[in-house]
């Protein structure tokens, strides 16, 4: 009664000003940090990238686009791009398929649904450094992976594929990247499972009931109904996955050091950038790589948007 009539009274102008002032005060610290560390950073990175830069004295000599040209013509950077693309092309579909498979399973009416969901997501909670260190230990020449496959008699199969009993999975040029792909498919499949689960639960039951009445089997229902109706889910997971894949870094650095050993097998675009900045201390070159990387990621996102439809809710 009184409250309602008071609320409907026109707002005094100085009250509006007080509200605006409070608003600005409440967001002041975050906006200041974003302004310097995000917006400012991009402008600063563009500026640095066209100079020869000295850590102590700043800009030394204007070089224009020379850093960009040097990067694109460096064979090691080309290797880094190739490795990163290879990783993306193999890891993204593999992990999406695994995540979708797990999501469909835990979306069924099964006993212990919560437990299985929690268990499948479990590998995703650990830090990349811990899980990679652990993985390298497991995949070492004398590690348990090689021992277990010997024990269960799989070695003939592996030697058929050209692997010795003491295969050095992370230290061999031919298997290093695939070993990282396997690790990240295992850890990230749980995250993608959760993404897909949210998407699966938005499909109405009526569609499935109609399919059941028409006598559709489980596989047919999945292929003709679930999979196509998950299109927004596919788009969202694929976008997140590709952005993540193009930024592969932690596992490559821990597995192969700052040079992506062995023989550049683990050299990725971000590792190349890190190498330029903190091994060669060539900051303007690293800034240029950062811009190139940003353009690549942005383009990939736009291309996916063109191919698969509209932007997600965020």
């Amino acid at each position: 009664m009184t409250a309602a009539s008071l609320a409907r009274r026109p707002r005094a102008p100085n009250k509006g000003r007080a509200e605006a002032l409070a608003g600005y005060l409440f967001i002041a610290v975050p906006m200041a940090l974003f302004l310097v560390l995000n917006v400012g950073s991009i402008v600063y990175a563009l500026f640095i990238s066209v100079w020869k830069w000295n850590l102590r004295s700043g800009p030394v000599e204007f070089t224009g686009l020379r850093n960009y040209g040097t990067a694109l013509s460096d064979p090691i950077f080309q290797t880094a791009i190739r490795n990163t693309l290879y990783y993306a092309v193999v890891w993204v579909p593999l992990t999406m398929a695994l995540g979708l498979f797990l999501a469909v399973i835990v979306n069924q009416k099964i006993h212990g649904q919560t437990f299985f969901r929690a268990a499948f997501y479990f590998p995703a909670i650990a830090s990349s450094a811990a899980i990679t260190t652990l993985w390298i230990f497991i995949m070492a020449p004398d590690g348990i992976f090689n021992q277990v496959r010997g024990m269960v008699g799989l070695n003939p199969l592996f030697s058929l594929l050209g692997f010795t009993a003491n295969q050095n999975w992370i230290g061999d040029q031919g298997t290093a990247m695939n070993t990282i792909i396997l690790l990240n498919a295992w850890t990230t499949s749980g995250t993608f499972m959760l993404f897909y689960l949210a998407s699966l639960q938005s499909i109405s039951h009526e569609v499935y009931e109609a399919a059941a009445i028409d006598g559709a089997g489980a596989w047919q229902t999945f292929r003709r109904i679930t999979f196509p109706l998950l299109k927004p889910g596919h788009y969202f997971v694929a976008t997140v996955a590709v952005i993540g894949a193009l930024q592969l870094f932690d596992q490559a650095l821990i597995g192969g050091g700052v040079d992506g050993a062995p023989n550049n097998a683990l050299m990725t675009m971000v590792l190349y950038l890190y190498n330029a900045a903190f091994k060669q201390f060539n900051f303007s070159y690293a800034a240029a790589i950062g811009i190139i990387l940003f353009v690549v990621i942005f383009t990939a996102t736009l291309v996916q948007r063109r191919l698969f439809g509209q932007a997600p809710a965020w």
């Binding site: 995000n38 400012g40 950073s41 640095i48 900045a277 900051f283 990387l293 965020w314």
Partner: peptide, 18 residues
């Protein structure tokens, strides 16, 4: 929202130098 789209690698050099 836009800050969520900026990759950390792009900010590496400027943030370190600042």
């Amino acid at each position: 929202l836009a800050t969520l789209m900026i990759p950390d690698q792009l900010r590496l050099v400027p943030v370190y130098l600042i």
